[in-house]
Write a protein that binds this DNA or RNA. Structure first.
Length: 309
RNA sequence: GGGGGAUUUCCCGAGUGGCCAAAGGGGGCAGACUGUAAAUCUGUUGUCAACGACUUCGGAGGUUCGAAUCCUCCAUCCCCCA
């Protein structure tokens, strides 16, 4: 471990030692490039835990460099779960993830080990902590129809308002995706989505969780992000993305930062240079980190652990 | 040496006499988010004692009731002819 990692690790241990009854699950999260992976391994060893990845992209095979996936060596040190279980062409959802993660967690505990979730997908984190509503799967036919309706100038928001005014009030008229999902749930169950979506209102109790968020100063994190993107290129991101380019990709995998910009670059549209593409990836990564922070700030379960170089 | 074009708010870029603190996009900042989530959506982005005032459109002058928009000179850049 590097010096700054040791410092953070010491802070984590301090907090952990103060806990008399261990929680059901441990969580280590933080924005991209905050150092979750290596710290997670150290933490898992200390806790006698196995790691369950909480990362919407590392779950895909063939996407290694761009997702900063733990290396085979790291995975040999501590068992990792929910990495490399999908093909990039597979579709997936939060609810699929939460189900899978709970199953693995139960299995790990049954072997007498602790469970440590490590990853930076905030929606997955929240789903794990507070639960996901039981609802219908995506209905591609209905969605396509609603998309067409909206494209041709139809008032989707008004349509939702007629069947589920509560949700319509909460959603911005431009928030097409969520409006469509709300209509979809209503169409298939006859009840408004607001009837089902109540899980997120209550934070998970302390005995169930302990969530550590690696918290870097923004400027410092941005520097780490920039460096990390450069290193990804040194480690073969370009080649990895080229291999994936043109292969069937699901809608989740195709939008991963680092890949989508390179796909655009390969396609020749807009004729960006490679350097411009790299800079764009850095910018998009920083923006992603910003959104992650917004989630963490809003989740009461999060305990921030200050990090500094 | 001669001719033409450019210079706009953090960036790109619209604007050619009042409706302009100045479209649009990018970036920044903030927020939302439960079946695509590394996605998607929203608000905001000159200053201030702020329903009003002040400063801004390369610089300096000028014309006009009024200028980013017109004129003069200067600076820088680009293109064409030599």
């Amino acid at each position: 471990m590097r010096i700054h990692e040791l410092k953070v690790f010491a802070k984590l241990l301090e907090q952990i030692d103060a806990i008399s009854i261990p929680p059901e699950s441990w969580y280590l999260t933080g924005p991209t490039a905050s150092g979750k992976t290596s710290l997670g391994i150290a933490l898992a060893r200390h806790l006698n835990a196995e790691i369950v990845s909480m990362d919407s992209m590392a779950i895909y095979r063939l996407m290694d460099v761009g997702t900063a996936k733990p290396t085979p060596e790291e995975r040999a040190e501590v068992p990792h779960h929910l990495i490399d279980i999908l093909d990039p062409s597979d579709e997936y959802s939060v609810s699929d993830y939460v189900q899978a993660a709970r199953a693995v967690a139960t299995e790990i505990r049954s072997r007498g080990k602790q469970v440590l979730f490590v990853g930076g997908t905030p929606l997955y984190l929240k789903g794990l902590l507070r639960g996901i509503f039981e609802g219908p799967d995506a209905d591609p036919v209905l969605r396509a129809e609603l998309e067409r309706f909206a494209d041709s100038g139809g008032d989707l928001h008004g349509r939702l308002n007629a069947i589920d005014p509560t949700t319509a009030t909460k959603l911005h008229p431009n928030d097409r995706r969520r409006i469509i999902r709300a209509i979809e749930v209503y169409e298939s169950t006859g009840k408004p989505i607001s009837f089902y979506q109540t899980q997120f209102e209550t934070p998970a109790p302390e005995r169930k969780q302990r969530v550590f968020v690696l918290d870097w100063d923004k400027e410092e994190l941005n520097r780490r992000i920039d460096r990390r993107v450069e290193r990804m290129f040194e480690s073969g991101l370009l080649e990895e993305a080229r291999y994936l380019y043109g292969r069937p990709l699901g809608k989740t995998a195709r939008q991963a930062v680092g890949y989508k910009e390179l796909f655009e670059y390969f396609s020749g549209r807009g004729h960006p240079s490679l350097d411009e593409t790299i800079a764009l990836i850095q910018t998009h990564t920083r923006q992603f980190a910003k959104r992650q922070r917004t989630w963490f700030r809003a989740m009461a379960e999060c305990r921030f652990v200050k990090c500094s170089p």
